[in-house]
Design a protein around this nucleic acid. Structure first.
Lengths: 235, 235
DNA sequence: ATACTTAGTTGTACAGTCCAACTAACTTAG
DNA sequence: CTAAGTTAGTTGGACTGTACAACTAAGTAT
């Protein structure tokens, strides 16, 4: 064994990628960025998750690095940022052994409407994928993010982070349904949401062509609520 | 901007750590290793999670690296190995910016009884901690592992991986209770386990000083089962 | 007024947990 | 041989929350 063997080990490339979700046009969408068309870069011109190398001089930790990359592309700070997992192997990046730390973020509708970085664009989720072929193993990471989001939406209040500051219960239910891609039962949904210490009514109504609906807002600084059951007990 | 700026970025140290759980002496225990007492190593003599640097020449991917480290310390292959998350920051390792990919593994009782590496030892979980002070941020990682395990045990069949090849329903319930650190209701537990397509009876009974109990085994190659509810609805 | 649409409630059925009491099968003490 | 003790396993009633469906409420449009 040589001295200081470990520090002399070659180190993997280390990146952070962020899967940024929002509801836009009544659909679940994800933010992608187009890779530069430089020949020295892998996957030139392909779409990829926003992300990049950890800056060990500037980034305090992985989450700060993820928040920075999110802010770079959207200009906003996400109300919800969760670590998704890490992917590392010899093959995933043609430049060599690399590992990425993946996060996923939920942006409220109004925040997702703002200006984006020039290379960024929203894409609708279709199934667990997105239409363009993604760089690296980002299709796999995106699929894991969609699965994780859907599975948590079964028993948590995560979609509340996708809502504007004030919203009605039918709008909240619609957001759950968009994420889950299946209809939910109205009365059970209302019972569950109102029983949770999650939202509170505001003194206004949403007026439309039909019966007005009560407006609610998230109780302040609210962490996601965990429910004791999934929505539909399985088969 | 210099050319090839990113590849010339200094890279973080990259490690993999494994939180290995087993039931021993009717308690949830975790495997720790004692760090070498070499002066050039950080935390000499302290207890730490088994792990170490990724070998980019030998390890195909992160999970293979975790499985290798598990095998090094216990000699066995875990029936359950799940990624827990990653921790990376400028401060967690005195040698510089480092990131670790943490996994957690569940060993069946009989596999956890075998010979260990010389520097390895089992420790009981007390609360969400272990008695010795751990190196690096391993106390935080261990705490996250215990929380993840407990939370998943509320609605999955994970403890089945901690059981020997044949076991009774009361033994399985006891394992759930050890992990959750709280008693469960007998009839609801049996209903749930038998309704799940998880275990099957074998043609033998566990004989003891009292009424014999039916022996079961896991249905083969069984992925963990997810239940639609937690055990005790909160509130 | 009447039809239409969406918001919100109500009632019955059902699934599964909670709690408690019960029966079953074995060992040990006397 | 019987009685006591222990653990395995079942049963039944109360309760919680979803499923399904029908209902009422409040607005707009014709």
């Amino acid at each position: 064994m040589p001295e200081k063997p470990e520090l002399d080990f070659p180190r993997p490339l280390t990146t952070v990628d962020v899967v940024i979700f929002a509801i836009r046009s009544d659909a679940l969408q994800v933010l992608l960025v187009q890779r530069p068309r430089t020949e020295t870069e892998p996957f030139p011109g392909a779409w990829a998750l926003p992300g990049g190398f950890v800056d060990i001089a500037g980034d305090r930790d992985l989450e700060a690095c993820a928040a920075r990359k999110l802010k770079d592309k959207t200009g906003v700070v996400s109300p919800y940022l969760e670590q998704l997992g890490s992917w590392g192997s010899a093959m995933r990046d043609p430049r060599g052994w690399s590992a990425t730390h993946a996060y996923f973020a939920l942006l409220p509708e109004h925040a997702a409407g703002g200006p984006l970085a020039a290379d960024a664009q929203w894409f609708a989720i279709e199934g667990e994928k997105v239409r363009p072929k993604l760089a690296f193993d980002h299709a796999e990471i995106l699929q894991a993010a969609v699965q994780r989001l859907r599975s948590k939406v079964e028993y948590t209040s995560l979609p509340a982070y996708l809502m504007p500051p004030e919203f009605t219960l039918p709008e909240l239910q619609r957001t759950f349904e968009i994420v889950l891609d299946r209809p939910l039962e109205k009365s059970a949904f209302r019972t569950r949401m109102l029983a949770a210490d999650l939202i509170e009514p505001v003194a206004r109504m949403r007026k439309g062509p039909n019966r007005p609906a009560q407006l609610y807002r998230l109780k302040k600084a609210k962490a996601p609520v965990f429910f004791a059951r999934t929505f539909n007990p399985p088969g």
